[in-house]
Amino acid sequence: MKFELDITKHLRSGGEEFVLRSHFSTSNRALVLFGPSGSGKTLTLKAVAGLLTPDEGCIKVNGDVLFDSSSNVDIPTCHRKVGYVFQDYALFPHLTVWENVAFGLKRVFGRVGPEKVRDVDALVGLFGLDKVAHLKPSFISGGQQQRTALARTLATRPRILLLDEPFSALDQPLRLRMRSELENVLEKFDIPMIMVTHDSDEVESFAEAVVVYRDGNVVGMHNVHEMTRAGKSLSDTIRHEVALAYGPQ
């Protein structure tokens, strides 16, 4: 995956201005955006998905231009072929697990076509949701909700998976188990990923490259393979980044 992003976005809230200046480029398939809450990670992810329009700049995936202010290109979210898993999973509460997974495959004002029903059944089975497929989200566990959100996202066969702090709503034991399950999913579907997190353990578990954010700016980027070849420690680097981010200002 070749991913290129160079954007600026000004936002105002309560009289305060926040400026996102995000710039990086990578060919790694597992990219983690790391930094404190409120540092601009999720805003960047939303810009990639088309849920936030930058003031200026460009976003490219494998050479395809998703956004370019200089040439007035802004591809609608539905045509970007990106899969977005929200922090709270954003499942439809009135739909069952099966219906949530199938939602992106529905015809407009219609039902899932017969040829797609088998795809939905296969995903429900793959994610171990067979026994809860008839239940609505409020009646299933946090881990099952996350698997449902992942299955729904992957049903549309996106070219890139965007994950916004996917484990933050889970308790620690379940978080560890779901990390392992996500690793298996990424390997099985062979899909590039961009993950947002402020958890250093998740960086070490998933990252091939790490983009570090602070106060709306990219303040560092680390390629894990290059670090390993140079004999550097990702753990030590992340601890240093945490100390800078959360230490005295």
Rank of each mutant, 00 (worst) to 15 (best):
V73T: 15
V212I: 13
I75D: 11
V218W: 00
I7V: 15
V117D: 05
A155P: 00
L5P: 11
G231M: 07
D119P: 03
Q144T: 08
N184I: 12
S71A: 08
A230I: 12
P192H: 04
G247Y: 01
M195Y: 04
R175L: 10
W98I: 04
D164N: 09
H79K: 15
L51A: 04
V219T: 11
P36E: 04
R239N: 15
I140L: 09
H134R: 08
V32I: 12
R21G: 11
G14Y: 07
D6M: 06
A49V: 02
Y213P: 00
T26C: 02
V73P: 07
A133K: 14
D199I: 06
E16R: 15
D164A: 03
G143I: 13
I238W: 01
Q146M: 10
V101K: 06
Q146W: 07
L186R: 06
R152V: 00
E4A: 12
P166Y: 06
L135Q: 07
K188C: 14
F127T: 01
S13P: 02
K41Y: 02
P173F: 07
N28D: 14
H10P: 05
Y84E: 05
A155T: 00
G83A: 07
I7W: 03
G40Y: 01
L182R: 00
K81Q: 12
R80E: 00
A133F: 03
R175M: 10
G142D: 05
N217W: 12
S235F: 14
K136D: 01
G142L: 10
A47G: 05
A230N: 08
H10W: 07
R239A: 13
W98L: 08
S70D: 15
P173K: 10
A90D: 06
E226A: 11
G14Q: 07
E202D: 13
M227S: 08
A30S: 14
Q249I: 15
K232N: 12
K9P: 10
R157V: 11
M1K: 04
S22Q: 09
E187M: 11
C78P: 02
D130W: 12
R147C: 02
S39R: 01
G83I: 05
G125P: 11
K232E: 14
A243G: 09
L154I: 02
D199C: 05
F109T: 09
C78R: 14
V73R: 11
C78I: 13
D121V: 02
E208R: 11
H222P: 00
D88H: 11
I194P: 00
E187S: 14
R239Y: 12
I194A: 02
Y246P: 06
T42C: 01
T148K: 03
A102V: 03
V120K: 11
D164Q: 09
A149E: 10
P137E: 06
P248R: 04
M193P: 00
V97F: 05
E241S: 09
V19L: 14
Q172W: 14
E241V: 09
H222E: 13
R147W: 02
T8Y: 11
F3M: 15
V32M: 03
C58V: 15
D55W: 04
L43K: 09
D201T: 14
G231R: 03
R157M: 14
P137C: 12
L176W: 10
M1N: 00
A49L: 02
